[in-house]
Each structure stands twice: as structure tokens, then as C-alpha cells.
């Protein structure tokens, strides 16, 4: 049904990728392509991880305002990283340079999100305003705990945590590209395999049970996927407040459908175009005067307020 729109989105995405690779490139092409290629791959991974985790979260919560970032998932990951630095006390702790550290953070993150958000989502009727407030409180809580930990660190360790606490699209941890690609790839396969079940889960608890879906099991599985996707994306570029909300809202407007087979693809393409195209513009054309995060958070923040106001009115 939405095939033509998906093709247009795909063309836009490829165009922005080509622009990112070629604009302002001078000198040795081999070097340019390799250097930019790694960053492009990282941007794409982050884009698809964020859009997918947002779609998944909105499906199991049946609303279009909340996203993992708003609920504090990525702050939770940064807190776990800070705890890692604090406990192991490595001066050169680069978030995820080693596979073991990354694996431990990932497991901790998944467990913590299952515990925290699983109990929240599996209540009989979690209402929207309570979820938003819980998200705010959790975000502030995680951030305060991190600040507390950071105060007890020595300056070198402090700088490591500080770098991972803010979104940065121009300075990506390309060192973890391989493991990030594998992990995100696995989570995406999982999400895609669930696409029909997600359609049913998005109908709400009672309708989903009537159609024979185990809502509890589905919710927990989706939370694991979200935990993985958010961890890897945050490890690569740091917390991204409103990007997920922005791109998924656009996806709902461009391809209005309840079918996740369409929605997941459309959101991923829009997310990729926004990140890669936006980064190409700001990095190459405007020479990094304004970081992309500022633009995205401004647009996404305004959208969030509008959606909340509309939700309150209804």
C-alpha cells in the first residue's frame, strides 16, 4: 500500500548518504571513503537503532508521545557506564573499547530496564500522564546518581564519563563499529521476526489476548530488544533526547499504518535521512557552527510539547 512512499524515502536516504560521502571531499579518495564510510555506517546504525526502539516502545505502551529516551533509557545506560568507571576505576576506560565491558554493560542495562520498565508496563492500566511523570523522575534520578558518582572520580575518569554523557554525532566511537553492527543487527532481526505480533500487541492488552497473543511475554521480549538497541546507540553517540520521537512522528505522518512491516522500514529510512543528511549539511555546508543534536532536540522538543498538549486536551 505504501510501496511508492517507501521507495521515495529510500531514494532520499541514498541521496543523503551520497551527499555525506562526497561533499567537500578533497585529496586521496581511498582515505576519504574509508574515513567517512566508517562514520556513515555508525550514523546509519544509530539511526535505525533509535527509530526501531522508539517504534517498539510506542507499540507496547500504545501511545505516540513516549519514547525510550523520554523514559530515561539512555540516561540509565550512561549511569551504568559511569558505575563501571567508578567500580573498576580505569583511567583510560573508553566506554566500550573492550567486548567484555560492553557485554557487561549490555546485560546490566537489559536487566535493569526489564526490572524498572517491565514492572511499570505490566500493570493493569498504566496511564499516560503517570508514565510521563515516571519517565521524568527516572531521567532526573539516573542523571543525579551519575553526577554523584562523577564527583567522586578523579579528573581523568571524569572526562571519560563526561564525554559519554552528551550526544555527539560528529565524534563517533567508530572503534566499536563491528560489535555494534552485530548486536544491532541481531536485535533488528528479532524485531522484524516479531512484526506481525507487534501489530497485534499495538491493539492493546485485551484485544491482543483475545487474538491469542501472550502480552506479558511479548512486552518483556520487546523490552529486551529496546534495552539492546538503546545501549548500543548510546554507546556510539551518547543520549539522544528527542530524535526517536521526531523521526517516528514523521513516519506516522508519511506512512500512516498500523502495520509494523511498513512502519519499521519507513521510520528507519526517515531516521537515516535525518541523521546522515542533517550531519552532511551541518558538518560540510555550515562547518559545524551548530551541532546536529541542538537542531534535532529543538524540533523534537517542540513536537513533544505539542503532542503532550494535544494529549491533555483529549
Amino acid at each position: 500500500m505504501h510501496r511508492r512512499r517507501l521507495i521515495v524515502l529510500a531514494v532520499l536516504f541514498v541521496a543523503s548518504a551520497v551527499a555525506y560521502m562526497t561533499i567537500g571531499a578533497r585529496g586521496n579518495w581511498g582515505f576519504v571513503l574509508e574515513f567517512r564510510g566508517a562514520k556513515l555506517a555508525a550514523l546509519c546504525l544509530v539511526a535505525v537503532a533509535l527509530s526501531t526502539s522508539t517504534v517498539l516502545f510506542q507499540t507496547i505502551t500504545q501511545n505516540r508521545i513516549l519514547t525510550p529516551s523520554i523514559m530515561g533509557f539512555d540516561e540509565l545506560f550512561v549511569l551504568i557506564v559511569a558505575m563501571g568507571v567508578f567500580v573498576f576505576g580505569m583511567t583510560d576506560y573508553l566506554v566500550v573499547t573492550s567486548w567484555i565491558q560492553f557485554g557487561v554493560s549490555l546485560v546490566l542495562m537489559t536487566g535493569a530496564s526489564l526490572l524498572l520498565f517491565g514492572t511499570l508496563l505490566l500493570q493493569e492500566r498504566p496511564d499516560l500522564m503517570r508514565m510521563i511523570l515516571t519517565g521524568l523522575v527516572l531521567t532526573v534520578l539516573f542523571r543525579s546518581l551519575r553526577t554523584l558518582l562523577v564527583r567522586m572520580l578523579d579528573p581523568n575518569e571524569f572526562s571519560v564519563v563526561q564525554v559519554s554523557s552528551y550526544a555527539r554525532f560528529h565524534q563517533i566511537e567508530t572503534g566499536l563499529l563491528a560489535i555494534a553492527a552485530v548486536t544491532i543487527g541481531a536485535a533488528l532481526v528479532g524485531a522484524w521476526a516479531m512484526r506481525h505480533r507487534l501489530d497485534v500487541l499495538s491493539l492493546g492488552r485485551e484485544a491482543a489476548i483475545n487474538l491469542g497473543e501472550d502480552v506479558r511475554r511479548g512486552t518483556l521480549q520487546v523490552l529486551v530488544l529496546i534495552g539492546i538497541l538503546v545501549s548500543v546507540a548510546t554507546a556510539l553517540v551518547g543520549p539522544t533526547a528527542f530524535l526517536g520521537l521526531l523521526v517516528v512522528s514523521i513516519a506516522h505522518a508519511v506512512t500512516p499504518t498500523g502495520r509494523h512491516a511498513v512502519l519499521l522500514v519507513s521510520a528507519a529510512l526517515i531516521s537515516g535521512t535525518t541523521l546522515v543528511g542533517g550531519q552532511a549539511l551541518l558538518e560540510r555546508v555550515f562547518g559545524l557552527v551548530t551541532p546536529l543534536t541542538v537542531v534535532i532536540d529543538l524540533a523534537g522538543g517542540v513536537l513533544f510539547l505539542v503532542l503532550v498538549m494535544k494529549g491533555l486536551k483529549r
Binding site: 500504545q62 499495538s202 491493539l203 492493546g204 485485551e206 484485544a207 483475545n210 500512516p256 498500523g258
Partner: peptide
């Protein structure tokens, strides 16, 4: 199959 009372179902 069950049709619950006042089922709030995806409006779109």
C-alpha cells in the same frame, strides 16, 4: 472470542 466493554483500540 471476547468483545470487552469499551475497548480502547488503536484509533488510526
Amino acid at each position: 472470542a471476547i468483545l470487552p466493554q469499551s475497548s480502547e483500540i488503536a484509533p488510526r
